[in-house]
Each structure stands twice: as C-alpha cells, then as structure tokens.
Amino acid sequence: MTSDALGTSLTSLTQLNPEITGEQIVASLVPPAQFDAAHFDNYRPDTDYPSQQEAVEFLRGFASAAAAPAKGGRFLRLGRKKKTAEDSQKNGVYLDGGFGVGKTHLLAALWHAAAGRKYFGTFIEYTALVGALGYAKTVELLKGSALICIDEFELDDPGDTMMMTRLIGDLVAGGTRFAATSNTPPNALGEGRFAASDFLREIHAMANNFVTLRIDGLDYRRRATSDQAVVADASTIETAVEKVRAAGGVATRDDFAEFVDHLASVHPSRYIKMVAGVDLIAFDDVVVLHDQMEALRLVAFIDRAYDAELPIVASGVPLSEIFDEPMLNGGFRKKYLRSVSRMIALTSAPKA
C-alpha cells in the first residue's frame, strides 16, 4: 500500500510497507522535485570560494563534450589546477566537497544540460535496481545511456562499492559517461576535508576515467538557520497537523520510537514511496538513538524526506541531537553530520 493509494486516509507512516519494482525504480531515476529547475545559471556560487564557479565552468564543458570514452588519462584533483579540454573529455567526474556546497544542484544541472538518454539517482537506488532486476538486466537496461548521475556515492559497503565499480566499467565501455558526488564534513575536528583519496581507492579499477572536482564552501543550509533543529510542543504539532489535513493535504504523525522500529521492516530503496504524497511529517517524543542500524535507516529516510522537501515538526530531543557520541565519532560520522544538516533545514522550513 502506498501513500498515494491511501490519500488523505494516511495518518501514520507506520501504516506503510510499500513494494517497489525495478520498473518503478527506473522511472524514479530523475532529479528530485526540488531540483527540477536546477541549472548552471541559477547556481549561486559563494564568491569566497572560487572553486564553486570553477566547477560550474568545468561542468558546462563536461556536459557538452562528446560521449565517446576517453583514452588514457589520469585521475586528477581539480580546484586550483587548470582545467583542460582533455579533462572534460574524460568519462567521469567526481564532485568532491563538504555537504551543503551545492554538489547535488550541480549534478542535477549537469543532468538537465546533457543530451540523450540519462539517469539520476542515489547510490542506494542503483544498488536496489541491481537487486530488483539482477546485474545482467541492469547493464542491459542502462547500456547506451549518455549520462548516469550517482548522488551520495557510498564508500562504506565494500560489496556494493565493488558492484558499482563493475557496473561503471561495463557501461563506460559502451560510451556512457558518469558523474558522482559523496559527502565529507566541513573541517570537523581537524579530519580530512576531502574524500577524493577514499573515492580513488575504492574505484581504483576505474580511477583513470574520472576527473575529481574539488568544491570548497560552507553548508548553505546552515547559513539562514540555527545550529539546532526546531523543537515543537504537542499543541504546536496538533495545530500543524490539523492545518494540513483541513486543507486536504496529508500529514502523518508518529511516535518516534515506533517509527524507527517500523523502518526496519521496509527496505531503504522503498522509503521514496513512503514519502510520496505526504505534505507534513510529525514525530512525538524524539529520543537519542544508540543503535547504529536504526540510525543509518533513519539517515536514509531523512534523505528521501529532504529530496521531497517535506517539513517536519517534532517534540522531544532536537532531531539534530539524536545521534549519540560514539556514532558521531565513528566510521559513519559523515552520514550523520549530513543528516543533521538536513534535519535542521526541514524543521526550520515554513510549516504548511
């Protein structure tokens, strides 16, 4: 059952356990609605960080370059280095930088600018497609496409990363070009600013086909918001939910702990269908998470809610503080910081 089918009868996300087919995944491989109008001309580079404008200029060339596979070449880290026409002829470009610097906007702008058959999806959507159709059928389906954009390339699952590297190799051989992003935190606790070395290591077999674009900058989501997710009381939640429903919209309201439990029964590739048709999400009694799997499932859900630009109202612990210290200091730190940024933006959004 989907939220579209339930319509205004949907009152809780725990009512949903949607299915998704390979054909539906393929149909969803386009930029999220918030990037429908994303173009190079409406990207607003921060003048304090010249690499943002440099990225725009390079990607314009990449979009217009011939789709034929590049021969030879090397894995370049661009930023302060001069970009060449030869670089734009490579088969892949990796947008490397902290979250909130506009990488997804630029990726979507590239997709819109490119001609021919093209696909845009998150790393998890492509791996889900392989799971639904099988590897051979996925290659057959995507073969011959002009451009494949991979947002949020995951480097922490060796099996999935190897599978995606193999997929890239098989499709590049047929002339397909690739563009990818991933996320790193902005100078947090002195850790490495960029993930290019990680990306290079994990896709070593394909590294010579990729140019790496370094994009500096601050998280734009934090420029106009506070550093904490907004907390609502029960009365505020009730008012927000009723306002949406009175206008004929769909507002869900869930106990946070019950919702987190429910996510375990739904594959992350199906979270996109959980948010379809929903206008407002409300959570009661948010608590700090201590289980890694619960936290990672929530991160995946928040990514889909963010793509759908769904406002969230929540009581209890601020959503920006739900990941405990061991998580924030562990191997998935980058994911959690990105999710915190997105939850701050969603709870700060104007309420429907």
Rank of each mutant, 00 (worst) to 15 (best):
G134R: 12
V260A: 07
E19V: 09
A33Y: 12
L189F: 10
D291W: 06
D46S: 04
A109Y: 13
R221W: 03
I281H: 05
E321S: 12
V313E: 03
H105P: 02
D41I: 11
H267Y: 15
I203C: 09
T84R: 00
E191R: 08
K82Q: 01
S339A: 13
R222F: 05
S145K: 06
R201S: 01
G277F: 13
F283N: 06
R193L: 14
E258I: 04
A66C: 15
G98P: 15
S265Q: 05
L141Y: 09
K351R: 11
T252L: 06
F323W: 11
Y43R: 14
D254L: 13
L289D: 04
A136T: 11
D227G: 03
R304N: 06
L337W: 14
M274G: 08
V266W: 15
P69M: 14
F62D: 02
A113S: 13
K83I: 00
K143D: 07
M206W: 15
T8C: 01
E125K: 14
L76G: 07
I25L: 14
D87E: 00
A55I: 00
V288N: 03
G277E: 11
T161N: 07
A66R: 15
L337E: 14
S315M: 13
T84D: 00
S265G: 12
F35E: 05
F58S: 00
L13V: 13
E309K: 09
F99H: 15
D261F: 03
T236W: 04
I203Q: 10
L95A: 00
V211N: 03
A207D: 08
Y119S: 10
R44C: 12
A232P: 01
P18R: 08
H204D: 09
L289K: 04
I25P: 12
A132I: 04
A251G: 08
T14A: 13
E325V: 02
P18F: 10
D96Y: 07
E294R: 13
F301H: 10
V288E: 03
A27N: 10
V56F: 10
F301S: 05
D4C: 14
R60G: 00
V250R: 09
E19T: 12
R177M: 05
K351V: 04
G192F: 15
A251E: 07
A179R: 09
A115H: 10
Q89R: 04
F199R: 05
H290N: 02
D46G: 04
S339Q: 13
E19I: 10
D261T: 02
A224R: 02
R117G: 07
Y135H: 11
E242T: 08
D46W: 05
F210M: 05
K82L: 01
K273E: 11
L171T: 05
G22M: 05
D284P: 01
A276D: 14
E325D: 02
N208T: 14
D48P: 00
D227F: 04
Y49W: 04
V211Q: 01
H204Q: 06
V299T: 11
V317T: 15
G248D: 06
L107I: 02
F58N: 00
N17M: 08
A173H: 12
R214N: 11
V287N: 07
D307F: 09
F153E: 01
D46Q: 04
G73D: 06
F99E: 11
T21H: 06
N208R: 15
T127M: 09
T14P: 12
